[in-house]
Design a binder for these strands. Structure first.
Length: 252
DNA sequence: AAATGGGGCAACCGCGAATGT
DNA sequence: TACATTCGCGGTTGCCCCATT
């Protein structure tokens, strides 16, 4: 037996709610509570299905709903919670009093997702890093500036886990020297090579010009899981052409 | 002034989970 | 225990408004 329809289609209204319908729904729920949603519309004198009534109430008419634009703090909270919970909008909404899951979902799709996807240039990345370096400079006393930058990149992008998860015995020491925030640096590393073995050799021997310049003990970096992680490279190379070439070269 | 395209948002749809019988 | 019903969630749609051409 198939699933029972949520409501009889015949004679029931769909689409936007009128003020009169809103008033009836508010009036009924304020006096009797919603009880059984399926039975509610008939009792309230509404030509709607229960599902439609529930949605209208929970997303729009509930008295505790906060109207208006989201504050910066709320947006930051959504971003953080989304990173932790994924698309579990109701769980996110539960932590934002007065906001509905539907509203949060809409804000995510229309504003926040785009904001997070904005391409990050080497310049803006370096600006961000410099700001954090300034904010944390006391914490990094005694380290050279490159190590500081990398430490912060790792923290910001959650790459710290690689340091402990990598099977490479060298990874802890050398990851502190990589990556540079400069896209050109990595461009040189990867695209100065003609095939995957070249990259491997460049990384191990330091033959890539950029690597020669910084002389950082490249072989260890090649041994880390970061080197084999497409997400890591995607963060550096932003265009589809670059990613496509990279993917082919590194055989992801 | 009219046409068009895109963004924003409310509402709908379908599914799985929870609850009732 | 099995089946029916209801609820709630997340994905998607479609309408309205506004900016641009």
């Amino acid at each position: 037996m198939g699933r029972a329809p949520c409501c009889e289609k015949m004679g029931l209204k769909k689409g936007p709610w009128t003020k009169e319908e809103d008033h009836k729904l508010i009036e009924y729920i304020s006096q009797h509570g919603h009880g059984n949603w399926r039975a509610l519309p008939k009792k309230a004198g509404l030509l709607r299905c229960g599902k439609s009534c529930r949605l209208r109430w929970t997303n729009y008419l509930r008295p505790d709903i906060k109207r208006g634009n989201f504050t910066q703090e709320e947006e930051d909270t959504i971003i953080q919670l989304h990173q932790a919970l994924g698309n579990r909008w109701s769980a996110i909404a539960a932590r934002l009093p007065g906001r509905t899951d539907n509203e949060i979902k809409n804000v995510w799709h229309t504003h926040l997702k785009k904001r997070l996807k904005l391409p990050v240039t080497a310049e803006t990345k370096q600006e961000d890093i410099n700001i954090v370096v300034e904010e944390n400079k006391t914490e990094f006393d005694g380290q050279d500036s490159k190590s500081k930058s990398l430490e912060i990149i790792m923290q910001e992008q959650d790459y710290t886990t690689y340091q402990t998860q990598s099977s490479s015995p060298h990874s802890d020491a050398t990851l502190h020297n990589y990556p540079e925030s400069d896209q050109d640096f990595w461009f040189d590393v990867v695209f100065s090579s003609h095939d995957p073995s070249d990259i491997t050799n460049n990384c191990i021997t330091g033959d890539a010009p950029a690597l020669r310049e910084v002389d950082h003990g490249c072989g260890s970096f090649f041994n880390t899981s970061v080197f084999h992680d497409m997400d890591f490279w995607c963060d550096i190379f932003t265009t589809s052409e670059e990613k496509s070439s990279l993917s082919a070269l590194l055989q992801f």
